[in-house]
């Protein structure tokens, strides 16, 4: 039995106990698989051999396959997708990001980003296993399809921002090594600056689109439940500001008024703002997005 489980659950129905155990063990196992994949990706980043490339792909794809299996298992067992609270949403976010990354990797045939994305996935999965669940507090409104669609759009958008964050960081790392005139590890193993710029641009454009869709579906849903009040929600404000930062990125890029290096810094800032503001709004402030 997980240590964080309050006493009241010991007296609660067996159903909740089983549910919590199922989520906890699944998230821990998936964390372990993602951690192994991370180790493999980092080893491949150092070794750069075909054998490591094959191994890492097999392991990571297995992890994602099992995660999909868990997702659908959850869906069929509890008749909803796992997004009703923070740990569930984080797990689903990792799954969507991993699927997007696999598709990206297959398309561009470049595996070096995995060594930087997978540690993020592992950390988020681990966090999702540790955060306590409140299964008895799930609002019936969270079972609505319109809500699920809204959350999925938002999660896909966040995945785009994550990919942009990693590629912008790698842009700056490679840029730094190039300016230092050193054939360091990043210089040797990373593709071009133009590649990272392209990936960042593509993922931000996609993310802006999905976040916009998320806003539209969320506004429709929010307006019905909380009327105009939902606009004052700290989470809504935080995501709106993030969206504006990235929209600024989009405009600057199209007006060609800044270098790619400055745009990378802006993309990283936008992502850090998103994480900080989300943590504050969900953890410290009262928010409609606390899933209660």
């Amino acid at each position: 039995m997980p240590a964080y489980l309050p006493d009241k659950y010991n007296e609660a129905s067996q159903k909740y106990r089983k549910f919590l155990m199922f989520v906890f063990i699944s998230h821990l196992l998936l964390t372990l698989l993602y951690a192994l994949s991370t180790w493999m990706y980092i080893s491949y980043f150092y070794n750069n051999t075909d054998l490591w490339r094959q191994r890492v792909k097999i392991l990571f794809h297995t992890a994602v396959f099992l995660h999909i299996f868990y997702f659908f298992g959850f869906l069929f067992k509890y008749d909803r997708i796992p997004i009703a609270n923070s740990p569930e949403a984080l797990g689903t976010f990792v799954l969507l990001s991993a699927i997007i990354y696999i598709a990206f990797e297959k398309r561009v045939k470049e595996e070096s980003l995995g060594a930087f994305l997978l540690p993020l996935f592992t950390m988020i999965m681990f966090l999702s296993a540790l955060i306590p669940h409140n299964p008895d507090n799930i609002s019936p409104t969270l079972f609505k399809v319109s809500f699920e669609v809204h959350v999925l759009f938002m999660l896909v958008g966040y995945s785009g921002f994550t990919l942009s964050f990693v590629s912008s960081t790698l842009y700056l790392l490679l840029n730094h090594q190039l300016s230092q005139r050193k054939a360091g590890l990043f210089f040797r193993r990373l593709p071009s600056l133009q590649f990272f710029e392209r990936i960042s641009r593509f993922s931000i454009d996609g993310a802006l689109f999905f976040i916009f869709l998320g806003f539209v579906t969320g506004s429709y849903f929010g307006f019905q439940v909380w009327s105009i009040e939902f606009l004052k929600d700290p989470k809504v404000i935080s995501v709106s500001v993030t969206w504006l930062i990235y929209a600024g990125h989009f405009i600057i890029r199209h007006t060609k008024s800044a270098s790619d290096k400055s745009l990378s810094i802006l993309a990283i800032s936008g992502y850090l703002f998103l994480i900080l503001s989300s943590a504050i709004s969900l953890g410290l402030l009262h928010s409609l997005h606390n899933f209660n």
Binding site: L174, L178, Q194
Partner: peptide, 9 residues
């Protein structure tokens, strides 16, 4: 190699 680190192939 340097050119390849800035521009795509």
């Amino acid at each position: 190699q340097l050119v390849n680190k800035i521009y795509d192939p």
